[in-house]
Write a protein that binds this DNA or RNA. Sequence first.
DNA 1: ATGAAAGCGCTAACAA
DNA 2: TTGTTAGCGCTTTCAT
Lengths: 343, 343
Amino acid sequence: MTAEPEAKPRRIRNISELAKLAGVSAGTVSRALAGKELVNSRTRERIQALAREHGFRPNQMASRLRTGQTGVIGVVIPLGHEKKQHISDPFFMTMLGHLADGLTEVGYDLMLSRVIPADGEDWLERIVDSGMLDGVVMIGQSDQFAAIERTAAVYPPLVVWGTARPGQRHCVVGTDSFVGGQLAVRHLLSRGRRRLAFFGDTTGLEIEQRLAGARAALAESGSGATLAVYPTHLSQQEMPGQIAADLDRMDPAIDGIFAASDVIAMATVRLLHERHRKVPEDIAIVGFDDLPLATQTVPQLTTVRQDIAAGARTLVANLLRRLAGEATGSTIMAPELVIRESA
Amino acid sequence: MTAEPEAKPRRIRNISELAKLAGVSAGTVSRALAGKELVNSRTRERIQALAREHGFRPNQMASRLRTGQTGVIGVVIPLGHEKKQHISDPFFMTMLGHLADGLTEVGYDLMLSRVIPADGEDWLERIVDSGMLDGVVMIGQSDQFAAIERTAAVYPPLVVWGTARPGQRHCVVGTDSFVGGQLAVRHLLSRGRRRLAFFGDTTGLEIEQRLAGARAALAESGSGATLAVYPTHLSQQEMPGQIAADLDRMDPAIDGIFAASDVIAMATVRLLHERHRKVPEDIAIVGFDDLPLATQTVPQLTTVRQDIAAGARTLVANLLRRLAGEATGSTIMAPELVIRESA
DNA sequence: ATGAAAGCGCTAACAA
DNA sequence: TTGTTAGCGCTTTCAT
């Protein structure tokens, strides 16, 4: 083995080695590489050229320790009540994608934490003062409301996707789940459906409120319609089997389903198809979220839209303001019924 | 406003403050908090209790700078030839989920980089020697083969999901795309289809090889079947419109489609349904990937399966070995045809 | 079993 | 415009 063709003098390990090579002090190199104006433009370019030539880049860890700014935002997905729920849940991922877009645009890196809070009481505290993060955005509250409140009280740069409770302190952005639930059920009723079912696990706050809205719509209608509730696992493995079982044992008179998410709705549509029950003719289905996949199913999903992109933008905007020391309130967005083919 | 009920003495900012409080030296606190044996078990517990009581946790940034270990793995998704492709592409996300599972299990954090290589020539170098990462896994090669090779030559802890080229140096794990393409087309032919179309953008290596396999299967069959090629955008926004256009202008005699991904296949199935063309009766469709959603469509997708979970496990395993200084070869997994309903 | 001291690589006040 | 110096908060010899 011979040496590499482009055998460079030898690897530069840090700023002072480069400084020695350039015949200046470490401070000057630091300033030059940071593109500061205080350094002679000739020297600056010479140093930058030297750095490029040697493939040298300053160690971020050191720089960040020194400046106290990490440039990293933690994105945490709490899997509190659903251990099996995979991080690849389409909703999480859609949100994560938008957050990545927004955060990288303003120069932050993302650190991903997939957390199972059962691991310990202080999971959020541990993340928050690891010293590695400038701020944190949580996707979902799961059943960790108390833990979030506790941390938010002492850690301002924390924003959460989810639902607001009266008197809460942490900055949340989300969709009005209660209204969303109302929208869904009102639509089902307007389609003449009277024997309804709700598919969703109400352990989490959001879905609990979707159900509450559904019930309210039912009550206000005075139609005498009924609503049977079936908790549905969020895990991609368990879900289809469980829905199948629910479908098989449930009252055959059921003619409308409000699914707590598009993922549930989609699986339900397919399972119904397998059972030769037509959607929406035999059973109408309304989903929730309006994920991209809602338009890709056959039939396309009628669903309650959450504007995930706007939500991500608001989360990022709020986080930035909090990073800058401002206060921010919560934002609850209005859901919107999108009528397609399934109901 | 009065003080908090549990007004703690006052916040401990670092190890030496805690040391002072405990009446020991910083070194001892460091050892105690790290759970080292060298420190008297009584002192250790006392210090740990004190830390807990004050909610103190050592600064990771400092610790990592000092030890030279960052404990974070960069996961990068290069969006080379498809600027509009969103990070929320289901394949990426499924892979990312599995990587997150595997990496967090062995104690690493994930740092997410969504990269558009056009941003600069040295994008990978910049990531790799930011000093923030112990290693890097790339999901996909995009059109960045050269950049990857260049970096891999000097940075061992790099593993890549993708495809192998003869003589390549970087550690890749992936599925044999060529064989996958063969499988798909052979199946279509065995179903009596003779006028085939390929939907996929061949700018990336993997899809190019899927097409090559498809062509090889065609040639070996001697059936006189034909294959029309339609490049398909990977972006979630562009894709449906483009497929629709392709569907409308393509030879009506086409009776079989090999879609380069399940996402493409799924969109195609729906668009065909809209056009009252039955799948598989009128047109058979074979997808690629076997994403979870492949089983959720109507009809369920016949597809070429890549074992994404196994791939993620192998990526992680290889990365760990490389982190430990070992060498690793590449792994090309055999694809498997999964016959469901669409073909 | 513990303390003292020397840095990890960088940045920023302060001087010159 | 540049150099010097003092840390950021932690870990880890080395000495005791």
